[in-house]
Design a binder for these strands. Structure first.
Length: 802
DNA sequence: TTAGGGTTAG
């Protein structure tokens, strides 16, 4: 920053190769240096020593005071690789009689070394000295502003240009167009362009490049069509723009029409296919490119490898690897990283690892690709080891590892790593937070989730589609409908997934009508529903037993939206019919399915049989199911429950035997509850909690109060052949009751008691929760495997239909 | 009397 670093004054000794003055190596002999000698000898300089000797001669003889001679020697210094920028600056500072050329040369030198801020500092110095600016000066300065992408500085420069009257210079105008384009200000770029009396090819190309940069297809096309001369670069840029904006047909057409296609034309089209998820086309095009003898470089190969990764085309990837080695470009870091990504995407993690270990020029992306590769292949531990040994971790590394934990259902570790990241002072970005919020959702860690929401607001992070959807989902899955609706309204960028989260979540919370309303609203807003939307919509109908409406939506999938119902949609319909007691219709629908029904579909019918007491149908289907899926614990349990409710204890024992035989273990009921930011977990019959004594006392109090209110335990739920009193004790140790008791102790009103259960809530716990909400005057929110139950004043939001 | 400035794609 600031002015170019102060250089030491130019003294003769700087240019002496030793303290002893030697005669010029270039045979200057005893000749006094003059212009002609300078001009013949400067270009012949082979090393810094020779250059220094000429320079020292000039100082010694005072010839450096000749402005023209000084400008030649400075120019040589800035252009030649023999000298460096510090020496150039020392020469520049030594020149007493400087002129515009000399200033321009020094300012240009900083541009060439990518130090535009030093160019601008020199300009300030020049202004102070009222230096000799000329029409060569401002193109350099405007370019410096463009390099800094600083519209503020650019505009200042523009006003100087007007003030000093350089605005009619075509070079100046062209750099202004470029500067405004780089700053994405196409309005001012266009103003300059429109006012140019004579447009040369640079002006056309610059304005086109601007429209391409901001992605304005309409204007770019307009300019391209009007261009008097179109070069390949212009055409290639248009292909790129079409690709970026999803106009694949136009890109392909333009490519076909090109009279001359170069390497960039081919790779622009290939990248267009790749970006628009047309991976086969990308590969085909690459094959044609090679067949046509077009040169291939590392940039195009990176695109093609990405296509291979998406297609899992490891064989093609290996062929390309061979080609890359043959043409000798394999050591490009980007290419190595693309190979690591391709191989790990195709499951060839060992190959990726070998490449990674063999590479000598690893960068941050290499490490991040390797970690993501391990995670993609499910090797979470290997990823963590690699992560721990990284020399430097950036936000991408942390996000990759955090999302890796989240995607492998290791939610506590997700949150722990997030905390560690913060301790390391790395600021999370939108991507990181999506994974963390998703972990909060699974763990029902609402406190942390809300903290993150506040963090997003405080740091004005952009709530993009993913983040918005994740937040809405979290609030709905934690039973906070109001908050979810608020985020939904605030989210500017709404995708189909955002609507889906809302439709599914509202229905889960028992707000079926609102959910269906949102579905209607979504369609009027022009958002096209997808198959997940219909899962939500039919699911909503299922929560309230809206059979006719559900059927209507199911039929509309094909008729209106051309979406073929999949096995899950059928399963959902079977569940809807079954729950409503239409068991025969449900079974008929299964028989009429165009695909093989999955176990979940039969399972839905089995559940319905249990609910509606159709024991015969239930037993028939249950036996079929445990054959189809002998490892599924839930079906065995349901079947055994059906036997139990018939009083068929032999059947119960038989099923138990089958379970033992297959090693099927019933998933224990588990409830989670968050108190003061800590998540507590309860298993059925659990006695391990540190506050178990208090909980026992509360359970007794609950039992007494509930009985007074008229609660009678529903012992039908217990499928053990034990007496009624014992059954009641078992019932009162269900995990959700333990959690409710704990909630009554640990969470002070009016905060609701929020519980998450891994299985579906049983009849008895549902009834008990209703009584507790009344007898203790507490709101209880239970999220079970399928939906929410908001208990308030003795009733539940599900209206006892679940 | 010399010398120097601008755009551009995958």
């Amino acid at each position: 920053m600031g002015l170019p670093s102060k250089s030491k004054p130019l003294q003769l000794k700087h240019f002496m190769s030793s303290s002893k003055f030697k005669p010029l190596a270039m045979n200057l002999g005893r000749l006094t240096i003059n212009l002609s000698i300078l001009e013949t000898h400067l270009p012949k300089c082979k090393n810094l020593k020779q250059f220094n000797q000429i320079l020292s001669q000039m100082i010694l003889t005072g010839f450096i005071r000749d402005t023209y001679a000084a400008s030649r020697v400075l120019k040589f210094s800035t252009d030649s690789s023999l000298s460096d920028i510090d020496l150039s600056l020392r020469i520049f500072n030594h020149i007493e009689n400087s002129n515009g050329f000399i200033w321009n040369t020094m300012m240009k030198a900083y541009i060439q070394r990518s130090c535009p801020q030093k160019t601008l500092s020199l300009y300030k110095l020049m202004l102070g000295k009222n230096g000799d600016r000329d029409n060569y000066t401002y193109p350099i300065l405007v370019q410096a502003c463009a390099m800094r992408a600083s519209e503020f500085e650019g505009k200042q420069m523009h006003s100087h240009i007007l003030k000093f009257g350089f605005d009619s210079d075509v070079y100046v105008q062209n750099t202004l167009i470029n500067m405004y384009s780089v700053c994405d200000n196409m309005r001012d770029a266009r103003n300059v362009f429109d006012e140019m009396p004579v447009l040369d090819s640079v002006a056309w190309n610059s304005i086109l490049a601007g429209y391409v940069r901001v992605g304005d297809v309409k204007q770019a096309k307009c300019i391209y069509d009007q261009m008097p001369v179109r070069n390949t670069i212009a055409s290639n840029s248009m292909i790129v723009l079409f690709g970026k904006r999803g106009c694949v047909t136009e890109a392909r057409h333009l490519f076909d029409e090109l009279p001359e296609k170069d390497m960039v034309s081919w790779s622009a089209l290939i990248s267009c296919f790749e970006q628009n998820e047309m991976y086969e086309e990308a590969l085909d095009m690459f094959v044609k490119m090679v067949a046509n003898g077009v040169m291939v470089d590392e940039v195009v190969v990176v695109s093609v490898l990405s296509a291979c990764a998406h297609l899992s085309a490891v064989h093609t990837g290996k062929l390309i690897h061979g080609l890359v080695v043959k043409i000798g470009i394999e050591s490009y870091v980007n290419l190595q990283n693309a190979f690591i990504h391709m191989y790990s995407s195709c499951g060839e993690i060992m190959v990726a690892e070998k490449l990674f270990n063999a590479a000598y020029n690893l960068d941050q992306i290499s490490w991040n690709s390797m970690i993501s590769g391990y995670l993609r292949c499910g090797l979470v531990e290997a990823a963590k080891t690699s992560f721990d040994s990284m020399p430097e971790k950036d936000v991408v590394s942390w996000s990759a590892m955090i999302s890796g934990y989240a995607q492998h259902d290791r939610f506590s570790e997700t949150l722990a790593l997030f905390q560690e990241m913060q301790l390391c002072g790395i600021r999370p970005d939108e991507t990181t937070l999506v994974s963390v919020i998703s972990a909060c959702t699974h763990l029902a860690a609402l406190d942390l989730g809300q903290w993150i929401h506040a963090y997003i607001r405080k740091n004005s992070l952009k709530v993009n589609v993913f983040l918005g959807t994740t937040l809405i989902n979290m609030y709905l899955k934690c039973g906070c409908v109001e908050n979810a609706l608020e985020v939904f309204e605030e989210t500017a960028e709404k995708g189909v997934s955002t609507w889906n989260a809302l439709i599914l979540g509202l229905a889960m919370n028992g707000l079926v009508e609102k959910s269906l309303e949102m579905f209607a609203k979504m369609k009027t807003r022009g958002v096209t529903p997808n198959e997940i939307t219909f899962m939500g919509v039919i699911g909503a109908c299922r929560h309230m037993g809206l059979v006719d409406e559900g059927r209507r939506h199911f039929d509309s999938m094909m008729q209106e939206h051309k979406i073929e119902p999949n096995v899950k949609h059928y399963g959902c319909m079977v569940d809807l019919l079954g729950r409503a007691g239409m068991l025969k219709e449900a079974e008929d629908l299964i028989e009429s399915m165009p695909m093989t029904p999955d176990v979940a579909t039969w399972g839905a019918l089995l559940g319905a049989c249990k609910k509606h007491g159709d024991h015969d149908r239930g037993e028939r289907i249950g036996r079929k199911l445990i054959e189809l899926d002998p490892n599924h614990d839930g079906f065995h349990v349901l079947l055994s429950n059906i036997c139990a409710s018939k009083g068929d204890w032999d059947g119960v024992h038989e099923i138990r035997g089958i379970m033992m035989q297959h090693g099927v273990v019933k998933t224990p009921g588990c409830s989670m509850i968050e108190a003061d930011g800590v998540v507590h977990e309860f298993l059925a019959g659990d006695k391990k909690h540190p506050r178990m004594k208090d909980i026992e006392v509360m359970l007794d109090e609950m039992a007494q109060k509930l009985k007074r209110e008229g609660y009678a335990p529903d012992t039908n739920e217990v499928s053990f052949d034990i007496d009624e009193e014992e059954k009641e004790t078992v019932l009162f140790r269900h995990s959700e009751k333990l959690a409710i008791a704990f909630g009554l102790i640990a969470i002070s009103p009016p905060s609701p008691i929020r519980i998450i259960k891994n299985l579906r809530i049983c009849n008895d716990c549902h009834m008990a929760a209703k009584f507790v909400s009344k007898a203790f005057g507490r709101d209880i929110v239970v999220r079970d495997k399928h939906r929410f139950h908001h208990f308030k004043q003795g009733s539940c939001s599900c209206n006892d239909y679940w």
